[in-house]
Design a binder for these strands. Sequence first.
DNA 1: TGACACTATGTCAGATATGACATACTATCT
DNA 2: AGATAGTATGTCATATCTGACATAGTGTCA
Lengths: 113, 113
Amino acid sequence: MRKSKRAKLEAAGWAVGSVKEFLGLSEADAVLIEMKLALSRSLRDRRQRRGLSQMELAKRLQSSQSRVAKMEAGDPSVSMDLLVSSLLLLGASSADLAKAIRGGEKRKSRHAA
Amino acid sequence: MRKSKRAKLEAAGWAVGSVKEFLGLSEADAVLIEMKLALSRSLRDRRQRRGLSQMELAKRLQSSQSRVAKMEAGDPSVSMDLLVSSLLLLGASSADLAKAIRGGEKRKSRHAA
DNA sequence: TGACACTATGTCAGATATGACATACTATCT
DNA sequence: AGATAGTATGTCATATCTGACATAGTGTCA
């Protein structure tokens, strides 16, 4: 399950939740991708809410602007670990992360957490 | 934040939630580690509940018994991506993961999700 | 005791992720 | 128009993760 799958397309602008069973992805793969996309959105929200540029955030994360861009774009080269630790550094709590993750299925308000 | 920190000790048997501020870890690092430990426990629970050996699970994950052992031990060499996708393959939903993640702080019942 | 099934721990070559860099694209100013 | 600030995208060396293997530890049964 590790390498072969993982469509490089994952990023492009999907209507919410539509990644499921698009191409040969297993349900598990699809859910994982959607979780990462949810975290991506959450990251961009938090960053913007704080009025930070990608550059400024990158500095705080000891990373680079390009990686922040990729994180926010849901680039497949970005790990969940990186997304999560970035969110934590932006002040998110584990409860916040749980909220962001808890399935796109049920989302109600327009706020991504 | 990437490499330098990340104590190799993270695994040893901590009393619930005690990893916080143990050595020089930032709050964010501590939370991340606890999240991973929560996922570890969840993985073992699910596997055992299904009556699978690490070997059998490994086969389903296309991985190896040793990696499963490390996952369950909270070994620092295990990524969150691996933990999460393993849990998904064991049938966990994103809601389940959210529950597992949502902070050890507030856990009430003995069931780890 | 030995034999067996399961789990833990160490190591390593190969696979992936990472930060850094360059460069391109998009505003929004004057 | 140019200039500036922010963002996107591609590449690459190095760091980290991964599956596989070996081997050791643990329990249980006869």
